[in-house]
Amino acid sequence: MRRYAAIVRNMFLESLNFRADFIFMVLGNLVGVFLAYYLWRAVYAGSGGTLHGLGFLQAFAYVAVSGCIFTMIETWAEWDLAMSISRGDIVLRLHLPLDLHLTTLVESLGIFLTRLVFTGVPFLLLIIFAFGVPVAAGINLIFFTVSLFFSFLISFNIDFIVGVTAFSFESVLGLKLIKDAVILFLSGAVIPLAFFPEALRPVLMVLPFQAMYYTPVNLLLGEKSIPESVLMLLIQAGWIAAFMTAGRLFHRKILGKLTVSGG
């Protein structure tokens, strides 16, 4: 474990070097939060307070917190992986006496942690204190933290699978953007699930994507009872197990197929 921890540490240190990236990410988030605020205020104008059972602050909170989660769990792992396969840099990871899937995971974890500390937490504070989103200071915070980490694990494994399949396509970036757009939409991160047509909602609830955004946001806002919250976490854990297994299968399959370019 210490071996992988050392990689997390270095990846954390290394991503601290991209200060300009952070500044732009923070600015981007800031713009996003303001846009969401004014957009949803316009949507709610003249609505008499609630739409589809959600108040304005709730709807805004869903979208703003989801955006914030996206910037944390979106570590470009699929891009890094596809690029390192197509450029052949993947050999450098294969030379280490480590598991490729786990190594990629902990590298991604290092980036996730930097994002959490330097953009995630400040933005959550901003949303809560500047915009007045009601978040209780109780067990919901612990549920949220666990759930956020779970979301990262699901997201990483999807990225891993996309990354190892994407390198054979000419457009890794295109595939990545489509994947992000689909996940954000179907998970209720762009438009709260409550706003989706009645018929569609049960379908979305059995898809894995809601577990990545809807679950942590719900747990943060603390609208569910403790047993309900625990159940949501368990469902999320179930999705992690499924995606971890799929990631392992792809990992096994790809190792024999790698041709490792260059040299």
């Binding site: 990689i7 540490r9 270095n10 290394e14 070097n17 052949g88 030379h95 006496p97 260059g262 040299g263």
Partner: peptide, 25 residues
């Protein structure tokens, strides 16, 4: 393994940090 065209060192970190992580690995 040493590859003339690729470096296994961490690009943005001081050399000694790469040595330390390899020591752990």
């Amino acid at each position: 393994v040493v590859l003339g065209q690729r470096s296994q060192l961490w690009w943005n970190l001081p050399v000694i940090e790469s040595f330390k992580v390899l020591k752990e690995i």
